[in-house]
Nucleic acid binder design. Structure first.
Lengths: 192, 192
DNA sequence: CCCCGGCATTGAACTAGTTCAATTTTTCAC
DNA sequence: GTGAAAAATTGAACTAGTTCAATGCCGGGG
């Protein structure tokens, strides 16, 4: 559990055993049952979470009640409404468990403590934010420039494991198309 | 020129005069004429630039030769291909001047020096990345969930000054629609 | 001053994607 | 295991957005 977290952050910075101890001391393990929420839009986001088990959907719910899924957070992913968490303002995103989940959570206070105690942590999150930013920039490029079928193929190539784990409705809400149309795309593709 | 840069970074962190001197010493002013490129896809992005005059478009050029504009960088904006700049890999983005421009540029080496010399700089870019990330997340939500007309209205509300400065083609390439259709949206809206 | 290349405008025909509704299949709670 | 609910499948009618082509506009370089 914590080993997974360690591996995750050591992609970006190195920590001694003591430093990692100190790092972990600020997290606590939360269990979230399927269909329960880690965050609801309107609330202030209390946690930044590192998923160690299960899968969440992070999504925006529009005025018509339709979901736009920003990303899926499975094992080894972070999940939060960054704006709400860092600025302690009401969230616009929902974070809901698609399976029974376990998440290592840190709150704002503890994160600020970490930033003070360990200079490296500032760098860690700078790099993580940067990488996430790059992937969202690519997603914008895809969503404004590619067809639904192309975006679907990109999705399956990038996250082959996710496809089996999710329903057609969820994938459609991620791609920004109706689930009926996704069904037609799949049929078309399977006929080659 | 440097005052604009100072104001820009002091939204996020405070610097003493000496620190700011040190900060600035790593930048140099570049002039880029209309239609010239600050970066071309395929090259390695040499600079991270802070625009002090003019306007750039930062865009992806797809296999069919059509442009997807990621953002416009006018005065007080930063422009770069982050992935290419930080990891020194070939860029996928083009950065082209829409007007005669002036940019304060820092190269990778100098940026790394800054990260070492001034711990605050790490924080500065962590926060800047974070804010940019939030705005791209919102853009993804819009582009997968809203109609072209809604996205156009969002754009004009968010960047009222940009609308007059750009051509219809450029705005359309930002919204991810054809310029003909943007024209029809505008006509429809002006008839109320 | 004029001409020309790039931009805006418009309409017609088309295609991608949606909505609705009906039916089947799968899942899963009891 | 069974019944109910959620998800998948499919088709028909529709709408949003594209593509192409023709025409007009207009601003700046010679």
């Amino acid at each position: 559990m914590f080993q997974l977290l360690r591996k995750n952050i050591e992609k970006h910075i190195q920590l001694t055993d003591e430093e990692f101890e100190q790092f972990c001391a600020n997290f606590r393990l939360l269990k979230v049952k399927k269909k329960d929420f880690l965050l609801r839009a309107g609330e202030i986001c209390r946690y930044e979470g590192f998923v160690t088990k299960g899968c969440f959907k992070v999504y925006y719910l529009d005025e018509n009640g339709s979901e736009q899924i920003l990303y899926f957070a499975t094992e080894d992913w972070w999940a939060t409404d960054i704006d709400s968490f860092t600025n302690q303002v009401p969230a616009i995103l929902n974070i809901e468990a698609l399976e029974d989940c376990e998440v290592l959570c840190i709150n704002k206070q503890n994160k600020d403590i970490l930033y003070h105690q360990l200079a490296k942590v500032e760098k860690l999150f700078r790099i993580m934010n940067q990488r996430t930013l790059v992937s969202f920039q690519r997603r914008v490029i895809s969503s404004i420039g590619k067809t639904a079928a192309q975006r679907y193929l990109e999705f399956t190539e990038k996250y082959p494991d996710l496809e089996e784990r999710l329903t057609q409705l969820e994938i459609a809400a991620y791609l920004g198309i109706s689930h009926e149309f996704l069904n037609k795309i799949r049929k078309r593709l399977s006929r080659n």
